[in-house]
Design a binder for these strands. Structure first.
Lengths: 332, 332
DNA sequence: AATCGACATGTAACCGGTTACTATAAAAAT
DNA sequence: ATTTTTATAGTAACCGGTTACATGTCGATT
């Protein structure tokens, strides 16, 4: 019913090995023979069975992207970057939502091993050293985002969180803020810690600095709302807020708005990430933008590179971030 | 190096067939034998090779989700619904962004065929009858969103666009609007047409109705902005806008805001879709919410049902939508 | 006693590719 | 003239499962 390589071989009057050579462009094949084979393939509408290929050749042309939750506005852009590059290179992407749960991540890894994916991109942070080592053992190339584990293989892509945070606070100072608070994300996340450190680096030198200007959020909108409410109780006079990510900045905006506090008039707000959301708030949000799409692209490129050359040396790349000034910090 | 079914068989002192039976829980197996096999599997850390399974058994436990663009805020929620259900049933999801381009969709279908995915969910609308027929021929179960093509197999999931649109306009009337405009999406899309029809159904009966209250948008934020600008030139006195989707509603909000027109004070705005964005605008957007996540879940459920029972009768399901009233229509 | 069906397990073909190895002719090198 | 090398193509094993078919046991049925 469905044409196989043997059907093609028969029709073209050659052996299966020759057909395989034509398909994979390897080994010696006379150009006339090649024509014959190609004609036969066309005539039979031959579609090689990837599964058989994978079984025999150990390549599935499939990579996986494990992220916490595709619904989080940070990830669709990233996923898109990954998918575009993958597609350009003949790869297909399996999407996995881990909800930042180590168990789920681990269970996904098992499934992905069974499916023989060629590589994995992790945009999550819950694997322990041991899990990564198991991956190395299994010879599965991988790329991680935002995390620099201690190992010999793998590739890590990070952004300059520290520098970005510093830039954010400096920008708020430039905008005339006299007392700047920071809503930080979960301390377990390096990104959150680095941003916090960036804030402190600049803030500590200011006369108004006091540790209670640091309030915890959890990288969600609601966390931002609550953080601001708490903040205003202690510091009714803050006039600048640097949120550890855009979602919390949006929450901050909401909370301030509810309280009737004008942004940027009374309080300036700056986020971090550069997700699309920041363009639709009122006022639009100033933010430290990560090159989200490019991170995805780069992750995919690096991974495919590793797969193709089976190179596995450890490598880390840091990308820059950029301050995007919008209305939320434009005191005029 | 890596354990195969034969290794397990040898260690357990049985044949490969028996091991296979134990794995797939089919055929007769003595419970003692089963224990032995299970022990052997554990001892060797045996992980069945899905590829070999797929080759032999014709099942890959993989489905694909083809959507226009995961960056569009409508889709992450949907994708999440699909993925969750898939995961619960042991399936893995391949994500494909088609940018609403027929060519890309078709090329994806080819790739997916090669990879022997067990089924496909389409959240796009650019396939012609012929493409679908080819899928039927290839015996690949599929589920489509928002579109009812004329065929014998396949499953279609839609929402009540017409009813939702009517509800939107009625709500605007209730809110006291005296002249309601509609920004409609691309006429090629059924969803856009149905919503437009819903608007007309109600609006036509109103004294203020005139065709120039219908302005084209393209389902993007920018389209919404431009539509409102055009609208205000012809009808500076509109006091209600029903946008064909949330993105355009956000655009409308932006445009009105720029013009210094207050929402909902001077103009009330209502969107359609119920994406998260609607909760972060200022004012928050009233919208007709689709059960986005549930649509994804349902699509995945229906697809898996079809795969498992290889039932292929044509089926269509319509889900309800719900009006979510927020500030953008609360003239007080 | 012969027949039958439920139970248990093994053998080997098969899925559809890849590729190591072999064979042969023609061109190049010695 | 002989050896090597290069170009071309075929044979068959192999990847790691699934499963049709064969074989055999044992209690139940006739």
């Amino acid at each position: 019913m469905k044409a196989t390589i043997r059907d093609v071989a028969k029709l073209a009057g050659v052996s299966v090995a020759t057909v395989s050579r034509v398909m994979n462009q390897n080994g010696y094949v006379n150009s006339e023979t090649e024509q014959k084979v190609n004609r036969a393939m066309k005539q039979l509408q031959y579609v090689p069975n990837q599964m058989a290929r994978g079984l025999a050749g150990k390549r599935t042309k499939t990579i996986a992207l494990i992220l916490p939750d595709i619904s989080n506005p940070f990830f669709p852009g990233l996923a898109r970057g990954v998918e575009d590059i993958a597609q350009n290179n003949g790869y297909t992407v399996i999407l996995c939502n881990s909800d930042d749960l180590g168990v789920k991540e681990r269970s996904y890894i098992e499934v992905l091993k069974k499916k023989y994916v060629d590589g994995i991109i992790f945009a999550t942070n819950n694997l322990v050293q041991e899990d990564l080592e198991r991956l190395e053992e299994a010879q599965i190339p991988f790329v991680m985002l935002d995390r620099a584990p201690d190992m010999k293989s793998g590739c890590v892509i990070t952004v300059n969180n520290f520098g970005g945070a510093k830039a954010a606070v400096e920008h708020l100072l430039d905008a005339g803020c006299k007392k700047i608070a920071h809503i930080y994300g979960p301390k377990e996340l390096v990104t959150a810690r680095e941003r916090l450190e960036g804030y402190e680096e600049v803030a500590r030198k200011q006369p108004w600095y006091t540790p209670t200007l640091l309030v915890p959020g959890d990288f969600t909108i609601d966390g931002g709302v609550k953080a601001v409410e708490a903040l205003l109780r202690n510091h009714p006079d803050v006039d600048g807020i640097f949120a550890g990510n855009d979602l919390m900045a949006v929450g901050a905006l909401k909370a301030l708005n509810r309280r009737g506090i004008s942004v940027p008039g009374e309080v300036a707000v700056c986020g971090f990430d550069g997700v699309n959301l920041t363009e639709i708030t009122q006022p639009e949000l100033t933010t430290i933008a990560q090159p989200i799409y490019q991170i995805g692209e780069l992750a995919a490129k690096k991974l495919i590179e590793r797969i193709d050359q089976s190179s596995s040396h450890y490598e880390t790349v840091e990308l820059g971030v950029s301050l995007i000034v919008r209305d939320s910090t434009q005191k005029s």
